[in-house]
């Protein structure tokens, strides 16, 4: 097909551009050599802060306008989710399977939607349309988070059959559940973990979430709540239990 021809053309141009000069390319004026320096780890050493990783994560996430609760047990977490939903006064709550399953067991909070649970295997209905309609109609989406980054207060969400991407995106309120033992100091540690666990091969989407959505496109005035959620609640559980 005529459109495919350009692959060879582009590669040929790139090779010609590189081949005409000896690699390494330009003598670096900044004095940087081509050897890799050991990467500075986190900006903050979260372990050193009082309260350690949980305290650092909480502080950093709150700086991004997330509302963080730290609880001791999964029972307390469930109770906290109930309190959040009650205070938001909502009628339609969507709970992603990863928040409904062990160890969170928040499935009983799902309400306002009588349709059967969708799985990715469903062939009989237009899964996409139903999922979009359902997430769009919901007032709150409750999901788990796979990791948290302590230095910036960022959640890491990994798409899977149990974690539905739209649940943390379409509803105006997102409640995220994360275990303290899944908090990592920062990005280098996260990429180490993802590499070790084949993260990019297993998940079609890994999403970092820091605070609710925002924009400053008009006069550089910060406004919270644009296309993504307008509110983010995070519940951190200190009890260690693998789901």
């Amino acid at each position: 097909m005529a459109l495919d021809d350009q692959r060879d053309l582009v590669l040929a141009r790139v090779r010609a551009a590189l081949g005409s000069r000896a690699a390494p390319a330009v003598a670096s004026r900044s004095g940087v050599t081509s050897e890799s320096k050991p990467l500075p780890i986190a900006f903050v050493a979260p372990g050193a802060a009082p309260g350690g990783m949980v305290a650092s994560f909480t502080q950093a996430a709150e700086e991004a306008q997330a509302m963080v609760s730290v609880v001791e047990s999964f029972d307390a977490a469930r109770q906290r989710v109930g309190e959040i939903l009650a205070s938001e006064g909502v009628g339609r709550v969507l709970v992603s399977p990863d928040a409904a399953d062990e160890p969170w067991r928040c499935g009983s909070f799902a309400r306002g939607d009588d349709a059967p649970t969708i799985t990715g295997q469903d062939q009989t209905i237009d899964v996409r349309r139903v999922r979009i309609a359902r997430a769009e109609a919901a007032e709150v989406g409750v999901t788990a988070a796979t990791f948290g980054l302590a230095d910036t207060g960022t959640l890491v969400l990994c798409a899977s059959p149990e974690h539905h991407r739209l649940d943390s995106l379409l509803p105006p309120v997102h409640v995220a559940l994360v275990q303290a033992c899944d908090l990592l100091p920062g990005l280098p540690e996260l990429f180490d973990r993802l590499s070790a666990e084949q993260g990019f091969a297993r998940h079609s989407a890994i999403t970092f979430v820091r605070g609710p959505s925002r924009t400053a496109d008009i006069e550089l005035t910060l406004t919270i709540g644009v296309h993504g959620p307008c509110k983010l609640f995070i519940v951190v559980v200190e009890e260690v239990r693998r789901g």
Partner: peptide, 22 residues
């Protein structure tokens, strides 16, 4: 001037078997 932006999406391929969204 943010330590991290609100969202970073790392997308590898279309949705996988079993995933409902994407």
């Amino acid at each position: 001037g943010q330590p991290m932006s609100s969202y970073v999406s790392l997308m590898t391929g279309p949705r996988r078997a079993g995933e409902t969204d994407g």
